[in-house]
């Protein structure tokens, strides 16, 4: 079953169908929320809130349009709302999630430095550039879907990705080359 069929089944009240949609899009939604919120717990809460909102509104989903941008727009909005609510709080850097993967001490230190630089690079990016970069490069989305999710023209998304990549390349320097 594709997304539209699962969404249709979910709209008829089938929670398992919506569970499969969560399985397919939940981790991408989590990455987008973490890119926005920069805090593990807040991001997970925002994804859960967004998924609940999507579940409650599933019968308003228009099957003629792609499901993923519809869902992600809800999750991204939930994350942006959470960010507005928590602006007064000090954002903590997200936890280290790269496994050492049996790297030797030198490689492990290099990986740790790379994590630090990715974190710093992402922190420096404006919010929308960060979202566009993550959705384009990490999730493989097209410009049109990102534009639909963010509610901006495609040209703006191209500009976001361009500036975000340039900033990340500057932040990472030659470190990323060594991780290939």
């Amino acid at each position: 079953m594709d997304d539209a069929e699962l969404a249709h089944a979910a709209a008829r009240g089938d929670p398992d169908a919506f569970g499969r949609l969560i399985d397919q899009h939940g981790i991408a939604a989590r990455r987008a929320a973490r890119a926005i919120l920069r805090d593990d717990d807040d991001a997970d809460d925002a994804v859960q809130e967004g998924m609940l909102a999507a579940w409650r509104a599933i019968d308003r989903y228009d099957a003629a349009r792609p499901f993923r941008p519809w869902l992600m727009r809800i999750v991204v909005n939930a994350a942006l709302d959470a960010r507005r609510r928590s602006r007064v709080r000090q954002a903590e850097p997200i936890a280290e999630t790269l496994e050492s993967g049996g790297l030797g001490p030198d490689r492990w230190a290099e990986a740790a430095l790379l994590r630090e630089k990715i974190d710093a690079g992402l922190a420096e990016l404006p919010e929308r550039q960060r979202i566009a970069l993550v959705l384009f490069d990490a999730e493989g989305w097209g410009h049109a879907d990102i534009a639909a999710t963010l509610g901006v023209p495609e040209g703006t998304v191209r500009s976001y990705v361009f500036h975000a990549r340039r900033a990340m390349r500057k932040a990472l320097g030659t470190l990323a080359e060594g991780m290939k």
Binding site: P15, F18, G19, I22, D23, G26, I27, R30, R31, R34, A35, D40, A43, D44, V47, Q48, M51, L52, W55, I94, A95, T97, L98, L114, R115, I118, D119, L122, L133, V134, F136, D137, A138, E139, G140, R165, M168, L172, A176, M179, K180
Partner: peptide
């Protein structure tokens, strides 16, 4: 998409215990 940068970002942003996270969300929705 820049595959190397994409992979780095995915590794960095996926977060711990993704399966447990998905299970929690499914339970909350159910």
């Amino acid at each position: 998409p820049d595959e190397t940068l994409g992979r780095l970002l995915r590794e960095h942003l996926t977060g711990p215990a993704p399966e447990a996270f998905l299970r929690e969300v499914r339970v909350a929705v159910a």
